[in-house]
Design a protein around this nucleic acid. Structure first.
Lengths: 216, 216, 216, 216
DNA sequence: GATGAATGAGCTTTCATTCAT
DNA sequence: GATGAATGAAAGCTCATTCAT
C-alpha cells in the first residue's frame, strides 16, 4: 500500500476522531457527561453506535481525549511567554484579553472541565502540575520583576496571580454560563478594562515614595 | 399517643432525613450526582434501599432538598447586610473572610453546586435571581458610596464585585478542590489579606486630588 | 374474660375484616387486583398497613376471602330452587330478573370475578363444580320437564341454560361495565323482557302438534 | 447495501416483533398482564431483557400493539357484511359459526381482552365505538328487515343482538376458559346448533297470522 | 471499515410483608 | 391490638460495550 493512501486513511481516521470529539464536547457542555449517551454522540456525528468504538476505546477514553485534545495548556503557556518582554500594563491587559478570548472560544470546554475535572483527580493533577504551577510561577515572577521585592512581601504574588485568573473566570462564568449577561449586559471591553484596572491598582498598591522608581 | 412521642418521632424522622442528605452531599461531592446511586447513599447511611424512599420522593427530590437545605443565600445576604455600616476596609475584610469561611464550611456543597448548577437551569435561575443579582447590587451600591461616583464611572462596580467574589472562589477552588494547597501551602490569613489588599487598592485606584476627600 | 366481651371482640374483629374486604372489592373493581396495593386498601379502610395483616394472612388470602365471602352460589342456587314449582314463563322471568338484580347488586364483585377467576384456576374449579354444574343441571332438568323430551333432543338443554345466563351476563357487561348504556340507554325492563321473550320462544321452538300438550 | 438485505432485515425485525407479541399474548392469557414481567416475556422468546426494548418502547406499548395487531374488529365487521345478502337462517348460522371460530382461533386474545379491557378505559371506548355500536346496528337492521317492524316493537333488536353474542361468548368462556368442557363435553356442532335454534325461534316468536308472509 | 442487533449489569422505584414499639 | 418504619426482592427500563455480518 502506498504511503499516500496510508496517510490519507490516517487523515480520514483523524478527522473522524475529531468529529466525534467535537460532537461529544458540545453535547457534554449541554447536558453533562453522564447524561449524554454514546448513542447520542454517534447519532449526532452521523455514524453508527458501533463505529464509535473503532475510534475510541470507551466513553471515558473519549473524555480523556477531549480534555487532552483541547488542552489550553500550550496556548496559555505561550500567552504567558509572550508577556515577558512587555510592560506591566501591557502584560496584564494582554493576559486578561487573551484569557477572556480563550474562554469565549472554548466555552464548551470550560463547561465540561469545570464539571468533570473535580471528579477526575488524575486529570486534575495533570492540570495543576502542567499548567497551574508553572503558569502561576511564571506570572508571579514577572509580577515581582515589576512591582519589586518589597511589594512582593506585602502581597503573596502566587495568590495574586490566581486571584487575577479567578476574576476573569468568575466574571466569564456568571456572564456566559449562568446567564447573568441577560440581567446585566455589559460590553466585553468594560469587563476586561475593569478587571485590569482593579488588578493593576491592586498589585501596585497605594503609592508611597519607595515605590515610585520601580513601578513600570 | 402522647405528644412527646410524636415530637420524638418527628425529631427522629428529621434526623434521618438530615443523615441521608448529609451522606448524599458527601458522596455527590466525591463522585458526582449521576455516579452516585441511591443504593450507595442508603448503604452509606446504614439503611436499606427502600428506606430511602420513606424520606425522599426521589433522587431528584433529594438534590433539590439538599440545595434548599444548605442554601447559603440567607447567610450570604445577611453577611452583606452586616457590612453596610462599616468602613470600606472593614467591609471588604469582613466580606472576604466571611466568604472564605462559608466556602470552607460548605466545601462539599460548593463542589456539588459547581458541578450540578450549570445543568439544572431552573436552580441556576433561582440562584442568579435570589442571590447574585441582589447581592451584587447591594455590594456595588456600598462600594459606590465609598469610592465616589467619579470612580464608579471608571470602573464597572457590578463587575468589580463579581471579580472580588471570583478571586475568593477561584483561590478556594484551586487550593481546596484541585489540591493546589499541597503544592503551595499558604496560610489562610495570607490568602484573605492578599485578596483584600488587591481589591482595596484596586477599587480605590491611583489617588488623585479629586478622590482625597471621599475615600473612607 | 367474660363470654360477652369475647363475642364482642369477635364481632369487632369480623366487622373489621368485612370493612377491609369491602374496601378491597371496591378498589379492585376500579383498578384491578395487581394495581391496588395493600397500602391503598388499608388507607381507604382507615387503618395502618400493618393492621391489615392482623386480619388477613396476605393479599392473596384476602382475594380468596373476598371471593368466598361474596359467593353468590347459595343465593343463586336458592333462586333456582324457588323456580321449580313455577310455570316455564314465570320461572324464566323470575330467573332473568333475579339474575339481573344479582348482577346489579354485585357489580364490583362481577368485575373482579371476571378479571381474576380465569387466572385462579383453583377458584375457577370451585366455581364450576359448586355453581355451574349443579345449577345448570337443575335448570336443564326443569326445562326438560316443561318442553318435553322430544324438544330436549333437538336442543342441548345444558347449553341452552348457559346461553340464557350468557344473554343476561353479556348484556349486563356491555351496558354496565363497558358503558354501552351511554350510547344506547335502555330501560332495565326492556332488557329482561327481550331476553325472556327470546329464550321462551327459543326453547319452545316452532309449535307443532306433538308439543301442544306439553308446553306450560 | 442491497435492497434485498434491507427487506430481509425488515422481515426479520417484523418476525421478532411478532414472536415477542405472540409470546406475550400467551403468557398474559395464562397469568395476566401484571403478573407477567418483561423479563419473562424475553426469556420465553429466547432473547435478553434489553432486546425486548429494541422492538417495543415499553410493556404498555406492547399491550397496545398486541390489541391492535390482533384486532378482530375488521374480521368481525367483514363477517357481518357478508351476511347481509343471506336469508335469516343462513345469516344466523353463519354468524354463530363464524363467531365461534373466531373465538377458538383467538382464545388467548379473548382471555386478555376480557381481563384487561375493563381497566383500560381508552381501549374499551375504542372497542365499543368501533365494533360494538356499528356491529350491533348492522345486525339489528338486518334482523328488522327479516322479522318485520311489528316484531321489532315487541323485541329490542339491539339487545337481541347482544344477547346472541352473549350466548356464543358465555358458552365459549365456560367451555374453553373455565374448563366446563371437561365436565360436560359437547360437540362444537351441538353448541352452535342449539344457539341458532334458540335464537331463530326466539326472534321470530310464536307464529301468528300477521307474521306469516314476512318471515324469511 | 462500518454496522446496529444483542447483551446484561445496573439504575430508580414500588410494594408485600415483618416486627419492635 | 395497632402502628408504621424498615426491608429487600423484583419490577420496568437504560446504556456502555461486543460482535457477527
Amino acid at each position: 500500500m502506498p504511503k499516500i493512501a496510508a496517510s490519507e486513511r490516517d487523515a480520514f481516521y483523524e478527522a473522524r476522531r475529531e468529529e466525534l470529539a467535537d460532537v461529544a464536547l458540545r453535547l457534554w457542555a449541554e447536558k453533562g457527561f453522564d447524561q449524554t449517551s454514546v448513542a447520542a454522540i454517534a447519532r449526532e456525528a452521523g455514524v453508527a453506535k458501533g463505529t464509535f468504538y473503532l475510534y475510541f476505546d470507551s466513553k471515558d477514553a473519549l473524555l480523556l481525549d477531549v480534555l487532552r485534545r483541547n488542552s489550553l495548556i500550550p496556548n496559555i503557556l505561550a500567552l504567558i511567554e509572550d508577556l515577558q518582554s512587555k510592560s506591566l500594563d501591557e502584560a496584564v491587559h494582554g493576559f486578561v484579553a487573551g484569557a477572556w478570548r480563550h474562554l469565549c472560544e472554548h466555552r464548551d470546554l470550560v463547561r465540561v472541565v469545570m464539571r468533570e475535572l473535580p471528579t477526575h483527580i488524575d486529570q486534575a493533577q495533570r492540570f495543576v502540575e502542567h499548567l497551574m504551577v508553572p503558569g502561576n510561577a511564571a506570572l508571579a515572577g514577572f509580577l515581582e520583576k515589576h512591582v519589586g521585592a518589597a511589594r512582593a512581601e506585602e502581597l503573596n504574588l502566587v495568590i495574586s496571580v490566581r486571584a487575577l485568573v479567578g476574576m476573569v473566570l468568575a466574571v466569564f462564568l456568571t456572564q456566559e454560563i449562568l446567564g447573568a449577561g441577560r440581567f446585566l449586559p455589559v460590553a466585553e471591553g468594560d469587563i476586561t478594562k475593569t478587571i485590569c484596572e482593579l488588578f493593576l491598582n491592586g498589585v501596585r498598591g497605594a503609592p508611597d515614595e519607595s515605590m515610585k522608581g520601580v513601578v513600570a
